[in-house]
């Protein structure tokens, strides 16, 4: 297992956002974490990436614990992510956004930066080339010199993915990557997720509300509700699981493709 989460607990004040969640993610897989709004999915991502520290529980990535690491250290270990509400660097160019994503893979020394030996330029050439390649990979060739904030919404999501891939992660966490997309766009996004795994060999974990995407792409699904894991299994198993149906249908209309702007997880 690439990622093993055991008995993870996180409370905010009196609210227990994540209670005793255990999830395993296999190497080179595509999995999804689903659940109603406020189920604790984004909190789980924040715990994984070091933005929050869990109250208890273990997170083991590639055999090493991630607990207590800062987000940048987690990134350096090979876990990268995107955000539910897009968080690009708005007034930097698209290419610069992707270049920043490479930060943890770069040799940085002030002396090198100031004296600029040949190695500095070699590295910069490499960074530029690789960022351009990544933009090509996500289908944004030729847009690298635009300001990130000037791109259409769907393209901004792609830039975020390219930026997340720039650190050569082993695992990429995508937080509602197709939110706000129409069916065509989400189909091509789904194809992109698959290519991330197939061509780059990066393990993919999605938080997703769009059941068409989830059922179409996932090899494994974990379901959270009220901060607890209520089920896991293959898409077919999840579809048939009575607890999952209750969690979704018991409290809301059957619409499964809705995506609200309300942040879930962090405040629950």
């Amino acid at each position: 297992m690439l990622l093993e989460i055991n008995n993870l607990i996180k409370s905010f004040g009196g609210i227990r956002a994540v209670r005793d969640v255990s999830i395993n993610i296999a190497e080179n897989s595509i999995s999804s974490i689903i659940g109603p709004n406020g189920a604790g999915k984004t909190t789980l991502f924040n715990l994984l990436t070091g933005i929050y520290t869990p109250d208890s529980g273990t997170i083991s990535f590639n055999g090493r614990s991630l607990i207590g690491l800062r987000p940048d250290q987690v990134n350096a270990r090979g876990v990268s992510r995107t955000f539910q509400s897009i968080r690009l660097f708005p007034t930097m160019t698209v290419l610069e956004n992707v270049m920043v994503g490479m930060h943890s893979r770069l040799k940085l020394s002030v002396i090198q930066t100031l004296l600029r030996p040949k190695a500095f330029y070699v590295q910069e050439d490499h960074v530029q080339q690789k960022a351009s390649d990544l933009l090509h990979f996500v289908g944004l060739s030729g847009q690298g010199d635009e300001l990130a904030r000037n791109l259409p919404y769907g393209d901004q999501r792609r830039v975020e993915i390219a930026r997340a891939l720039a650190s050569d992660p082993k695992l990429i966490l995508l937080d509602e990557p197709t939110a706000g997309m129409n069916p065509n766009e989400s189909d091509s996004a789904t194809a992109l997720f698959r290519r991330i795994r197939d061509e780059l060999g990066v393990t993919v974990v999605l938080i997703e509300h769009d059941m068409r995407v989830v059922m179409g792409i996932s090899e494994h699904i974990d379901v959270l509700d009220y901060g607890q894991k209520i089920a896991d299994g293959t898409p077919a198993e999840i579809r048939a699981n009575p607890r999952v149906i209750e969690a979704y249908l018991g409290r809301r209309a059957a619409g499964t493709t809705e995506s609200t702007g309300v942040t879930d997880g962090s405040v629950a």
């Binding site: 987000p71 940048d72 990134n75 708005p90 943890s104």
Partner: peptide, 10 residues
């Protein structure tokens, strides 16, 4: 531009 995104990107 964005501290949270920056630290998450390493």
């Amino acid at each position: 531009e964005d501290e949270v995104a920056a630290i998450a990107m390493g």
